[in-house]
Structures are given as C-alpha cells and as structure tokens.
Amino acid sequence: MSLSLDDVRRIAKLARIAVSDAEVAATQTQLNRIFGLIEEMRAVDTSGIEPMAHAQDVALRLRADAATAVDRREAFQAVAPLVENGLYLVPRVLE
C-alpha cells in the first residue's frame, strides 16, 4: 500500500496536523516507509494468538465508589491562563 500526496494532505487534516506544501512529499515518503514496516509485521503468522490489550499481564484495579476528593478549584485555577466566575476561559468555540 502506498499513499498519494492527496492522501497525506487529507490524513493531516483529519489528524489536525499542519503539514506545509514543502513538507508533504517528505511526509509521504516517511508514511510509506511506515506502511512498509507494517506490511512486514503483518506477514508474521499470528493465528491462534490472543491480541494483547496491555503490555503487562494484569487486571484492572478497582476502587470503592466514594466521593472523597476535596474542592481544589482555587489551586487548579491559579495556574490557568484565564478564568472567570469559576469557569476556565478558552478561545470561543462555535458549533
């Protein structure tokens, strides 16, 4: 599998990464090399092997349902760039 320059531009847009026209060709080469590596790995016979979900063979730790956290808004918001009425302010989002 190999990607066209248009594929690269589209993937960049979906991933919200700004890739300039000057960088597109280099990115295409790099991505295609990665696909080559993936092809190599896919060639390995993995039938009968259960996929791993985690690098360590452990089960998820669970905690009791208790609301023990104290309100630390003041400390948290002391390092926020902009706050008002207890809200964090961010550049306006429109939908």
Binding site: E84, N85, G86, L87, Y88, L89, V90, P91, R92, V93
Partner: peptide, 13 residues
C-alpha cells in the same frame, strides 16, 4: 461549554 460571551471566549465547567 458555556457559550455566553466572555469577551470573545467560551467558559468551561
């Protein structure tokens, strides 16, 4: 998100 106008910003709770 609170979209009332905070001088061109949105508020986040």
């Amino acid at each position: 998100s609170v979209h009332e106008d905070f001088h061109g910003h949105s508020g986040i709770d």
